[in-house]
Computed example of a mutant assay.
Amino acid sequence: MNRIDRRGPAAIMGALALAAVLSATGCSAKPSRDSAESSGAAPAAAGLDQKGGPGQQVAPGAANKPGQQDTTANKADLRVDQRTIIYTGSITVRVENVDEAGSRAATIATTAGGFVGGDERTSNTSSSRAKLVLRVPAAKFASVVDELATLGRQERRNIETQDVTEETLDLDARLATQRARVESGRRLLSQAKSLSDLVMLESELAKREADLAALEAKKRRLADLTALSTIDVVLLGPKAEQEDDEPDTGFLAGLKGGWAALVASAGVLLTVLGALLPWLVVLGVPVVGIIWLARRGQRRRRAAVTVPPLTPPASAAPTSKD
């Protein structure tokens, strides 16, 4: 009993000392862990954007409001200078000398960096005209049209535009996809291990390459139309009549059309008759001669064969009886 009583106070003092040491150790470790967590949270917050993606910094005040989407990256460039537009135009000018004005129009196109795509001219005493197709760079389209109007007295001008921006973007996307398909087909073809797989992959690769070639041709055609604009130029002489694009209507227009159709039909009939006349002469004369000879022979045969007339037989003389 006495031994237990003496050891009791010593054990209590040892336990209190151990608790003090443990509490001191825990207090010193907690601030370091909190500081580590706080120091690690700042870089993590700095490296995340609103959507939680790494590596994207968010500028102060640039955060979107709740329910608002960021469409800046997906917004297309709608500026006019960034769009793909096809320019086409036509102009009619009355000039004193058609040949001289046609040469000047060709010079205007070549000076602007273009070329003459077509040239049709008609010259006579009553009327003279010329039709030219000019291809000029799109950037100089308006200036070339204005310069062509100075060749004489402008009588008609028509300018049209076609926006093919969406078609161009869609074609570029299809080209990228088709090129990727061709490349994958070539890789699969190089890895073919059997003859059946080789034949199947060659057929599929040929089809993909044909589709790619068609898309590339369409891309080149679209690029040509957008890079070079088309201008149809009509040059009229002093006495030439301007062609009317709008058709006439009404009774007089119908009468005029019917008369034109009658004249055209008569012309076709006479043409066919003129083509058949030599054959009728060559074949018809012998046929007519043969028919005439045949009928003449029949008449001669009928004349040669005569039938004697039927006469009653002579009656016997009466005999007298004694």
Rank of each mutant, 00 (worst) to 15 (best):
M1G: 15
N2Q: 14
N2G: 14
I4M: 03
I4R: 03
G8L: 13
A11M: 01
I12V: 15
G14V: 04
L16Q: 02
A20S: 00
A24L: 08
A29R: 15
S32A: 14
S35E: 14
E37R: 07
A42S: 14
G61S: 06
G61L: 03
A63R: 07
A63H: 02
N64C: 10
N64R: 12
G67A: 08
Q69S: 04
Q69G: 04
T72L: 13
R79H: 11
V80L: 12
T88K: 05
V93D: 06
D99H: 01
G102C: 00
A106C: 02
I108Q: 06
A112V: 04
V116R: 03
V116D: 03
G118N: 10
E120P: 00
N124R: 15
A130K: 13
L134V: 12
R135H: 15
K140N: 15
A149D: 07
G152Y: 04
A173R: 06
A180I: 10
V182P: 07
K193R: 14
E202H: 00
E204I: 13
L222Q: 08
A223M: 03
L225M: 06
A227M: 10
S229M: 08
S229Q: 07
G237F: 02
P238G: 01
T249I: 04
A253D: 07
G258C: 03
A264G: 10
S265I: 07
S265H: 01
A266H: 12
G267E: 15
L269I: 11
V282K: 14
R296C: 01
